[in-house]
Design a binder for these strands. Structure first.
Lengths: 204, 204
DNA sequence: TGTACATCAGTGAACGCGCGTTCACTGATGTAC
DNA sequence: TGTACATCAGTGAACGCGCGTTCACTGATGTAC
């Protein structure tokens, strides 16, 4: 098992999934340029040579890893039930914002929002990666708008504002490091009227 | 003048200033890891070998370049006059926010807010750089709070919220690239109540 | 004020290192018969 | 159902290349006398 041998189709698919999952976390944790192909493969339990059996380039991996991350964090906003009446309720919005604006999110970059993790690197990561960010963000904004539902007169605008505020808060919190300022910036945004409204949104 | 020779104290100081200024722009434009010492020196009109007569390491340059950038953008918020009465007026706040939330700012990363330009890279750039970001952000928040003046019941919290919103908007706008979504995220934040208030702040 | 010399900013070549990528090889998988 | 063989996921060494950093050298500066 440890030595070199061909894998079954199932094992191959498993390897690919493991590479993407590992990359998704490592890129968020240490930045797109701070993680090498060999780092990803080593963490996934393989050697770097086999990487190109799965992806044509590092950029292709970054593209897929970021798409995966956007989908992972956005899935928590999906409607999970309806109230049995005529319309669905936006489930989980308050929990989403609660978790987003937390010290835990600041610390655990590897499991958090990809925009907050590597947003300022995205413009330098190539066209494919840029497209992945555009699509991931669009989808996330749609999910947020849906979750905001009738709580706002213009849900999409409210979603865009909310996402911008959340992303900026976490990026600043991480950039200034542990300390009073970090706590303050999180607390201040938690007290924002629009954020307060989202935190009090109906949750199933 | 072109060939190798010792420079006067004045010329040496001029070279150092040029290196920091050049680095400040290049790092913002292409990211901290996307710019090498040789790039900076070449753009500043020198060869890379002489770099270490001015700085002990690349990190030291990043540290100073970011401090320079924070000070440059924050200086526009300084009080520039008073109304001749008992208190100073917050000058330039509306112009600051107006320029911040513009396509021009999105495009001209090299002259814009350093937090928006490289914020998500800061946590991986070393302790000195982190300290520079913490100090630069604190100073910028203070300037924003002062500029907000009596417009908000808690100026510091309002400043923290405003900065977070501005930073997040520009990072998202750049990450998604040119297009409808980019225009929308800027327009949405321009319509935010707190932003509208800042845009209408007294301007001298 | 003039002269001799130590300093040191800047040059250009070189260093080691890590990165993305390539490649010959292995041997279980999975297919053709 | 059984057998022979082509495929290809994964290994481990190797490749260029660019990066941060070092170094011997140059010659005008600026100081000591």
């Amino acid at each position: 098992m440890g030595s070199t041998m061909r894998r079954s189709k199932q094992a191959t698919a498993e390897s690919r999934r493991m590479i993407v999952e590992t990359a998704s976390r490592l890129f968020r944790a240490r930045g797109l340029e701070g993680v090498g192909v060999a780092d990803v493969m080593r963490t996934a339990g393989m050697t770097h040579g086999g990487f190109y059996r799965h992806f044509p380039s590092k950029e292709a991996l970054v593209t897929e890893a970021m798409a995966h991350a956007f989908n992972e964090v956005g899935a928590r906003l999906e409607l999970e039930s309806n109230d049995g009446g005529t319309h669905n309720l936006p489930v989980k919005l308050s929990a989403y914002v609660e978790d987003y604006l937390s010290v835990k999110h600041v610390v655990h970059t590897e499991l958090g929002c990809p925009m907050a993790a590597v947003g300022s690197e995205a413009p330098h990561a190539g066209l494919e990666v840029g497209a992945s960010f555009a699509q991931g963000t669009e989808r996330l904004v749609q999910r947020l708008a849906t979750a905001l539902g009738n709580a706002a007169p213009t849900p999409r605008d409210a979603a865009l504002r909310l996402l911008s505020s959340l992303v900026g808060t976490i990026i600043i919190a991480r950039a200034v490091g542990e300390g009073t300022l970090q706590d303050e910036v999180i607390a201040a945004m938690r007290a924002d009227p629009a954020v307060v409204q989202a935190l009090n949104a109906p949750s199933a």
